[in-house]
């Protein structure tokens, strides 16, 4: 995934939503423990692509909910803050987001949804997987070839070794 590829440009979120989503990522992205890769732009694109495959109700509701998160600090921050979420310092953003996450109801569900998608995309980024020592993609390539070889061997062995349940 590269940020410059037009096919990977955000498809659902406008500039305002993108700013809010970036603030969410800044607040909650994994930090330390070897997870400081500069992948935020890629994660943003991945989240946007994923959000665009949500059902229509959520495609409409998610950007609206993000506006509520952005303009909510005067109402929901503890203590109240007369600014927007994306302008809060990072530690306050984290505390504010955490408050939403534990608020339950629609606010809790929205925060949980954003957290879920951000972490899903973040931890599947190739650089993050590499830092965990996980090479799922490389293993998949090897095993697809291994199975192709197994099937080729079976085909050479003749029809007697064919699979069950196939009436072709």
């Amino acid at each position: 995934m590269t940020a410059g590829d037009p096919a990977d440009q955000p498809r659902l979120l406008g500039r305002g939503s993108e700013r809010i989503l970036r603030a969410c990522m800044t607040a909650i992205r994994p930090r330390g423990s070897g997870f400081d890769q500069p992948v935020d732009d890629d994660v943003l694109l991945g989240v946007d692509r994923y959000l665009s495959s949500l059902p229509p109700l959520l495609r409409v509701g998610m950007p609206l909910g993000m506006r509520l998160l952005e303009y909510g600090p005067p109402l929901f921050a503890k203590p109240r803050r007369w600014t927007t979420f994306s302008r809060l310092p990072r530690e306050e953003q984290l505390a504010y987001f955490s408050g939403w996450l534990h608020a339950g109801g629609l606010r809790g569900n929205l925060a949980l949804g954003l957290r879920t998608v951000i972490y899903l995309v973040f931890y599947q980024h190739p650089e993050v997987l590499a830092s965990l020592g996980v090479d799922w993609e490389g293993r998949a390539r090897d095993l697809v070839q291994e199975r192709a070889a197994l099937l080729a061997q079976r085909a050479q062995a003749g029809p007697a070794s064919g699979r069950r349940g196939d009436d072709a």
């Binding site: 607040a27 992205r29 972490y119 965990l132």
Partner: peptide, 13 residues
Amino acid sequence: LAAEHAARMRRYN
């Protein structure tokens, strides 16, 4: 969240 989440996920393997 954030650093706490990272510390847990570092142990993925």
